[in-house]
């Protein structure tokens, strides 16, 4: 292993720089260990959050070559080899305090905003002196979310958080899911109603949270589950859910998407008025949106809908199984990447 130069973000807002520290260390050394070595042996003024060094306290999330990762869980070698450098920056989407330490206030605020505690259900009080009953199906709902260590890697990776302060973010919504599926909780309806505003539907399904989560909580998939539950419980209350529901009925008609009709149904007539200038512009470039002719075998599609678009199928949303446990960090298939 060659000497590895660590390019580390330093300083406070207004006065920032990158310092390069070179270390001779084995490839499998976790990046946290390397940073602590820098602190102990080269520059004691480097500051960062850390504690357990075993991926359970959630303190040491940061950006490593742009990816949001736990430093304790990410070995030096593969990251260095993939990009020929190791650039260490504080998490994104949170104000930097100093060096690798960010202000997590907004992250925690979002967490607290979902009422992260059991709300008693007056209809079904908890049994006195013994545990609450739980079926294996109910227990199975807790497959992923209890693994969350609130490290905020997902929050740092999320492009929706970066662009819209209304979004609750992957962690808070995954936490919400944990309460929504809890049979001991009495606020199922209210909880869904609370996010069936734009927040739930601002998730982009980009799955960056899924890749950055060190505990394989798969937040995007939990958000997807919440969207589905919200549709079932509350119906099409606003644009996001209306779009999802209308999309399904839209393609049933001709097999391909009728873009004009979907826009009308999602946005409403008033919303459509706002689209007129864009429509004219598109038409000028030959991009007019017409209705596709129906596909051949449209009746087959219709048969699928008749068979599967029924309430009993909607009751049943099996999990797409995840890895269970996140293995070693992805090893890029080959060096290079972008220039």
């Amino acid at each position: 292993m060659p000497t590895i130069p660590f390019e580390v973000f330093r300083g406070s807002p207004g006065q920032t720089r990158f310092d390069t520290f070179s270390l001779d260390i084995p490839e499998h050394t976790p990046i946290l260990t390397a940073l602590l070595k820098i602190r102990d042996e080269i520059d004691p003024t480097l500051t960062l959050r850390y504690s357990c060094r075993q991926a359970i306290c959630g303190s040491c999330a940061m950006r490593i070559n742009g990816k949001s990762r736990l430093a304790c869980l990410t070995p030096v070698g593969p990251e260095f080899r993939a990009r020929g450098k190791l650039r260490i920056e504080p998490m994104a989407n949170q104000p930097v305090l100093r060096d690798l330490v960010v202000d997590q206030g907004p992250f925690w605020q979002r967490y607290h905003s979902i009422r992260p505690y059991l709300v008693p259900d007056p209809q079904h009080p908890l049994p006195v002196g013994k545990e609450s009953p739980m079926t294996p199906e109910q227990v199975a709902q807790f497959q992923e979310t209890p693994r969350c260590i609130a490290c905020a890697s997902c929050y740092s990776a999320c492009p929706a958080i970066a662009s819209d302060g209304d979004f609750l973010g992957p962690m808070a919504l995954a936490k919400l899911f944990r309460f929504v599926v809890d049979p001991r909780d009495g606020a199922f309806h209210e909880r869904l109603l609370g996010v069936q505003n734009q927040s739930l539907w601002l998730c982009l399904r980009c799955n960056l949270c899924v890749e950055s989560c060190p505990k394989d909580v798969r937040p995007a998939e939990r958000i997807h589950d919440l969207k589905w539950m919200a549709n079932q419980e509350l119906g099409a209350l606003e644009r996001g859910s209306r779009h999802a529901i209308k999309f399904a009925s839209n393609i049933r008609e001709g097999g391909l998407l009728n873009e004009m009709k979907l826009a009308r149904e999602t946005l409403g007539l008033v919303g459509m008025l706002g689209q007129i200038p864009k429509g004219i512009e598109l038409a000028r470039h030959g991009k007019s949106i017409r209705k596709h002719p129906p596909i051949q075998g449209r009746e087959e599609l219709d048969a699928i809908y008749r068979e599967l678009d029924r309430p009993e199928d909607l009751q049943h949303r099996p999990r797409v199984p995840g890895q269970g446990v996140k293995g070693p960090t992805q090893q890029p298939s080959k060096a290079g990447g972008a220039a």
Binding site: L126, K130, E131, S132, P136, V139, P146, D182
Partner: peptide
């Protein structure tokens, strides 16, 4: 016993036996 039950009632997600007990 009471402590574990209390924590369960606070929302702790313990592993369950097939019959649903802790």
């Amino acid at each position: 016993g009471p402590t574990v039950i209390e924590m369960e009632h606070f929302g702790t997600i313990f592993n369950r036996a097939p019959d649903g007990s802790l």
